[in-house]
Amino acid sequence: MNYRSSELLEKAKYYCNELSKHHILSKYWYELALVLKGSTARGNSDQYSDIDLVFFCDKNILDRIVKDYYDEGLISREDGIFLPLPEWIGHYNLESYDDLIGYFKEKNYPQIWEYTNIIILHDELNRFSGIVEEYNNYVFQDMITDIKEKYLSLQLTLDWLRHPLKRGDELSVILHCSKIIRLICQLSYLIDEKTYPHDKWLFYYLKQTEFGNRNENKIKELGKNIINNSIPLQVDKELDEYSQYVLAESIITDLKNQIQLKYGNEPWLDEWYSFV
């Protein structure tokens, strides 16, 4: 944990104590869990980082807290709470335990990644930690199904890329290449049976995956070659004359080989067009 993270963690603990004395929250404190998430919890904070606190509780308790806040004019909406800490050093919001369980059951990988890289500040009933422990293994069941879905989407996006390239539609090329890079990164985590973060951190932690560690520079090169501002995108060329397509196809081929190495030669790897 770097110095900035340690500094913010101490402030998070301070605000945890302050919030425990809040005239509304204190009424429900025993039934609440409070976690610190974000870069502060992960230990890699920088000058742009803040304190990101989330309360968890049962849905009926959440509804009562929201009503209390609304009735006292502390919030202006009745569908939730999101409030800044003093001087906008951070913020806190409320979610239900049902929300947390839903992230695992729905395999919402970015949210699971977020809530398995946290620091628990308060969880007297061990509800938060108990849910994570109970449902975490569920996430990694039948991973090949999720890998297949991402892989088919990746190949389909590459196939669609040929049309905007040949038309010289630069904006569409940017959108398709961006999606390809996102899917490549997400698959890199899934192949290693890991959850993946939101786009904000997707490439930042990519080196923690086997494929990402080996192919980081190639993925960066694809990003840099999406559009060359000094050379207009020419129309109706052969596909092997477009660096965007060649780079993307090369990375996807490497990715396919990585999947084959770990999971065997699934028929949809080569004949993907028959499965979409």
Rank of each mutant, 00 (worst) to 15 (best):
I174C: 11
L171G: 11
K200F: 06
L165A: 12
L202E: 01
H176W: 08
S172C: 11
P197A: 00
P164E: 07
L165W: 09
T195Y: 06
L187R: 10
H198P: 08
I174K: 13
Y196G: 02
R182W: 10
L165N: 12
Y204W: 06
L190N: 04
Q186R: 13
L183V: 13
S178G: 15
I191T: 11
P197F: 02
S178W: 12
S172H: 13
P197Y: 03
I180P: 06
I174N: 06
L165D: 12
L183I: 15
I181K: 10
C177V: 15
I184Q: 05
D192Q: 02
S178D: 13
C185P: 11
L190R: 06
R182L: 07
R167I: 07
G168Y: 02
P197N: 00
Y189A: 00
R182S: 11
Y196N: 00
E193H: 08
L165E: 12
K166N: 14
Y196V: 04
K166Y: 10
Y189H: 05
Y205E: 09
S188Y: 10
W201I: 04
E193C: 09
V173E: 07
D199L: 09
E193I: 07
I184N: 02
W201S: 04
Y189W: 10
I180G: 08
D199Y: 08
I174M: 13
K200W: 09
F203N: 03
Y196L: 03
L175I: 15
C185W: 06
T195W: 02
S178Q: 12
P164Y: 08
I191W: 07
W201R: 07
K200D: 01
I181T: 10
T195F: 02
L190E: 05
T195L: 01
I181C: 02
C185I: 12
L187H: 07
L165H: 09
H198Q: 10
P197K: 00
W201F: 08
L183P: 03
D169W: 15
I180V: 15
D192G: 02
L202T: 01
K194F: 07
T195H: 04
K179P: 03
K194Q: 15
P164Q: 03
E170W: 00
D199Q: 06
D199F: 06
S172V: 08
G168K: 06
L190K: 11
S178Y: 13
G168H: 05
Y205P: 03
H163I: 13
I184D: 04
R167G: 09
E170D: 09
R167V: 09
V173R: 01
F203Y: 14
S188P: 13
S172L: 15
H176Y: 14
D169H: 15
E193R: 13
I181A: 05
K200C: 01
H163S: 09
I191P: 05
C177N: 12
I174S: 07
L187W: 13
C185H: 06
L202M: 04
G168S: 07
L165T: 12
E193G: 01
